[in-house]
Design a protein around this nucleic acid. Structure first.
Lengths: 204, 204
DNA sequence: ATCCCATGTGGACGCTGACAACATCACGGT
DNA sequence: ACCGTGATGTTGTCAGCGTCCACATGGGAT
């Protein structure tokens, strides 16, 4: 009853579904991740996905994890690329690069960025999230600032959330907020002034 | 063919639809604003809404406008309630209250907050938005800080976006972000430290 | 009194997520 | 060599959604 063009069993469906969903999320955001469309693109019947994911939300969680990993990778690359000898100056610049990388990713991949924060957390205890992912990376950079003596232990408390909030808010306002249509040049320029405020607020 | 329990023409449908949609948005967020459910609650057939709105997005825009107005009102009330004589101290406290009111609203009305920023801008030129709404209120408070000599004109540039981003990001992270489950006490406490950072960054 | 048109109705279409029953097939025990 | 069993994929179905269409209603202008 089948043409035997494709084998009945895909054999490697789950990762293909996730890849397809990621691609869909990238181009059309969370609402574009449509189970039936994912199946269509994977060359498989609607419903096949239910053998691998409880429901649409579960697939989105998977996409969210991938998006978080991508974001973390983008941040890590930029942080490690900072080439400054002076330990204090390097730590400071690393913090700024952390913020720039975060915002750049959000603007470069708005769909993934949205999915990353729209899907419920799959996982980890709160403590695990502190040490892993983008937030963990930020914490590491802040710890480095303490180690080199640029940031007092007292101000280290809450600094993570302050940095994260500033940069996350800036990204949100540009991705699907009211600052959507601001041209790229202004964007970078204003981001620098935001980073300046955080910089002075933490280290000043 | 009709029972004549209700007149054929509602007579006041449009505002009722908006009210209903707002209520639905409040309790279930953007995705909960379902055209057919709105019509049901308004006691009117599905499709009736199409005489008053082009489509679902248009209705959501209306809800967004209302949400923005509510947010502005909440902020204005809190700003005007600041009772401090010293002009500098008052302006500073007004800025902090602006931020607290913003975050409080987001946490108290997460559905409305989300809709407020999810729907495309109905309207106004960028300049109009600068002078009106929550963003306009923030700008007024920052201008006051300049007037009383607490904020230099130089740092006034970009201060609006920095404040907005910090507070907006903080709200987002708590409303549907990773900080969703942080208990209220920590929330307020950490918010103060975020406001401290902005405070020092701007005025320090 | 008449007509017009804004407003509301009912039905249809194609899409979605989800469930249930069935088909296929690789694998392991006999 | 055989069978059966469980994981994986398919087909069929359902309700709910946004949207379009033709039609019904009736208040207000003529």
């Amino acid at each position: 009853m089948r043409d035997r063009i494709q084998p009945y069993h895909h054999g490697n469906l789950r990762p293909v579904l996730v890849d397809t969903a990621v691609e869909l999320a990238r181009t059309t955001g969370p609402d574009g991740v449509v189970l039936r469309e994912v199946a269509r693109r994977a060359g498989v019947s609607h419903n096949a996905a239910y053998r691998h994911f409880d429901d649409r939300a579960a697939l989105l969680c998977e996409v969210s994890d991938r998006a978080m990993a991508d974001l973390e990778q983008a941040m890590r690359t930029r942080i490690e690329a900072v080439a400054i000898d002076d330990p204090v100056a390097r730590a400071v610049e690393r913090l700024r690069e952390t913020g720039r990388a975060y915002v750049d990713f959000a603007i470069r991949e708005p769909g993934l960025f949205e999915v990353a924060f729209s899907a419920g957390v799959t996982a980890d205890e709160h403590d695990a999230a502190t040490r892993a992912g983008p937030y963990g990376l930020l914490n590491a950079v802040l710890d480095e600032l303490v180690d080199v003596g640029a940031l007092s232990s007292e101000r280290r408390q809450g600094a993570d959330v302050a940095c994260w909030a500033a940069v996350h808010g800036y990204a949100e306002l540009h991705v699907h907020g009211p600052l959507r249509d601001v041209p790229a040049m202004f964007r970078d320029q204003v981001l620098e002034s935001v980073l300046d405020v955080v910089h002075r607020g933490l280290l000043g």
